[in-house]
Amino acid sequence: MGKITLRNVTKKFGDVAVIPALNLDIENGEFVVFVGPSGCGKSTLLRLIAGLEDTTDGSILIDGADATDTPPAKRGLAMVFQSYALYPHMSVRKNISFPLKMAGVDPAEATRKVDNAAKVLNLTSYLDRKPGQLSGGQRQRVAIGRAIVREPKAFLFDEPLSNLDAALRVNMRLEITELHQTLKTTMIYVTHDQVEAMTMADKIVVLNAGRIEQVGSPLTLYRNPANVFVAGFIGSPKMNLITGPEAEKRGATTIGIRPEHIDLSTTAGEWQGEVGVSEHLGSDTFLHVHVPGMPTLTVRAGGEYGVHHGDRIFLTPQADKMHRFGADGKAM
């Protein structure tokens, strides 16, 4: 079981309220991603759940029981740190079996569990190495192995992939998602990368300055962002956010339209602009179009789209995919 409930959880460092009172329910078996810009309090929130920081106010419930004052080891949660936090002088085997040793698990049983974890994580041939002799991805897997053998109620990941190169990141992303599907254990995953959030999560929690901006499934956030912040944060490339007369014409303070929801034409359309930079990815082409009276708009064209810098182009936003936001930034 791994149901985690946060009730009015508050964290202050001195006078600074990093997390103002926050409420959140995490269901058993869910893959929840906390996403938000750097410094918005994601790690702090995760550490509060782990018990590595004391809450200033509010309570944390794990499986219905109040765990606010329970020490980290007793909460039954396992954490994977950004720096991996492996024990440098211990072999991979010793690293993975450390929590078992601390729990007084029978050595034969521990060996069996470590071997199992190593097999799942492709670490079998590295068990006798020291962490210093492993690559970044392997270290990451050792850290995950150390978490798995404890059979925790929930896994906590703090930006586990941010130290890996792009290709490895995509691989590990898949591996972690797959691990979740095999283990079916609750996972809370912190990242500032909305692509990781979109691809991995059952439920995304968008944080901004310690506040929850929106909670929902990836597609809910994509389709119905609750406010300007979420609209701008979720989706790649970013949603075009337009203020001024064009927004007022539609009765909003800000309107948002995603790059993939603008139709292109070289002959006629609602907005007329000039092509700036065009990024050719092969599968897609992203055009940056300068339209008078608007910020530079990003537009996605499927496949290869043959326009050049300085060409005239017409844009038509798909009216039903348009997002309208009021003066308070909330969706209308």
Partner: peptide, 27 residues
């Protein structure tokens, strides 16, 4: 001594004494 290592050990259920023996002393 790396603070995250200490915290990892704390979460792994190592007591203050165990952390001293397994982390501090080798360090």
């Amino acid at each position: 001594l790396d603070r995250e290592q200490q915290e990892a050990a704390e979460m792994d259920g190592a007591s203050v004494f165990a952390r001293f023996i397994y982390l501090t002393v080798p360090h």
